[in-house]
Design a protein around this nucleic acid. Structure first.
Length: 185
DNA sequence: TAACTAGCTTCTTATATAACAATGCATG
DNA sequence: CATGCATTGTTATATAAGAAGCTAGTTA
């Protein structure tokens, strides 16, 4: 099936933050350079997801490999902030998964020149001199798939794993049908 | 001229190509 | 010791999504 390789989530504490103070109190794990970027990066640990937190109290988590890891990263963040007397507003606090990046494998060597035409040139593009994979935007799916000659597929843009799974399954079955039909020729 | 909108910045992650830089090793 | 080739390493290309803030361009 497919494997989740990255999860992006966002949330809000529902209150304004003083990023300068946060950077001072947590200087060993916080990187804040407003000249470069308005968000402050919080490194909760090596190989842990990255938290980027903003003046407005909103934050994003990137680099988790499951919903569970994104959730636990949020818990760690809230605990850390509560240690510094920052508590989320009870009514304006929210958190949601925004994007799943998944990897699938068709387990076949693919002819991308032929596949891009079969998939339809209006919903897929293949410019090997620009990028080695097909960019496929299937209708009825909210995901974008990157398809490579090796058969590896990246499914990105899904807000839940099921929609990513469905998008991959549809492509997987479609390609296998192509091979089945070829064998009848 | 002010207000608005769009597009870019930062980061993460897999995938796979080319183009480049830098280094290692061998031969002249 | 210098030059050539090979290997390794890094960067770019493209994708999605969130966030705040900046700039550029358009419109009233």
């Amino acid at each position: 099936m497919i494997k989740v390789v990255n999860v992006v989530a966002s949330g809000s504490l529902g209150l304004e933050l003083d990023l300068v103070t946060i950077e001072e109190e947590l200087s060993d794990i916080v990187d804040y350079d407003p000249e470069m970027y308005p968000g402050a990066y919080i490194h909760l640990g090596e190989s842990y997801p990255l938290v980027t937190i903003y003046r407005t109290g909103k934050y994003i988590i990137t680099g988790a490999d499951s919903k569970a890891e994104a959730d636990s990263t949020r818990d760690t963040l809230l605990n850390l902030l509560s240690d510094h007397k920052i508590l989320p507003a009870a009514d304006d606090d929210w958190f949601a998964i925004q994007n799943y990046v998944c990897m699938g494998d068709i387990r076949r060597e693919l002819d991308l020149d032929a596949l891009v035409i079969d998939l339809g040139l209006e919903i897929s593009e293949y410019e090997p001199e620009q990028f080695p994979g097909i960019v496929y935007r299937p209708p009825n799916h909210n995901c974008v798939l990157l398809i490579f000659r090796s058969g590896k597929v990246i499914i990105t843009g899904g807000k839940d794993i099921d929609s990513s799974k469905n998008a991959f399954s549809t492509l997987y079955e479609h390609i296998n049908n192509l091979f089945r039909n070829d064998s009848l020729d």
